[in-house]
Design a protein around this nucleic acid. Structure first.
Length: 109
DNA sequence: AACCTGACTTCGG
DNA sequence: TCCGAAGCCAGGT
């Protein structure tokens, strides 16, 4: 079994988020092995987001809101999400009870 | 090995 | 809901 680094796990998890769903930095960190490393997810997005072609727009904060600010990515993220069916309010809020992604392995719990 | 960096999170008010 | 303060951390330098 190859030893995966936390960063590699994060990249894999982000790739698993399906279109039309979102997840949060903290949840992705938790699924990757460390619930308290949410900030690492941010770093991974910066470092490998574009390079690895990750669906970065499907990642929002734990409260259910887009973190990027207007004029600095907010519009682009909102448009990408709406293009795949995710409803985003003018303030960037997304209903988690409707769009939060639940990994397959959680369905059986 | 110390220090820095973040698109975070949680908590109190 | 919003804001500030404090906590947290892997990886790069």
């Amino acid at each position: 079994m190859p030893k995966h680094t936390f960063t590699e796990e994060v990249i894999e998890i982000i790739r698993e988020i399906p279109a039309g769903k979102v997840s949060s930095y903290g949840r992705i960190a938790a699924f990757s092995g460390n619930a308290r490393a949410a900030r690492q997810v941010v770093r991974v997005l910066h470092t490998y987001g574009e390079k690895e072609g990750l669906p970065w727009w499907r990642v929002i904060n734990a409260a259910g809101q887009i973190v990027l600010k207007p004029g600095n990515g907010f519009e682009e993220q909102r448009d990408l999400l709406e293009a795949e069916g995710v409803e985003v309010s003018s303030k960037g809020w997304i209903k988690l009870n409707q769009f939060l992604w639940q990994p397959d392995w959680m369905d059986e719990l």
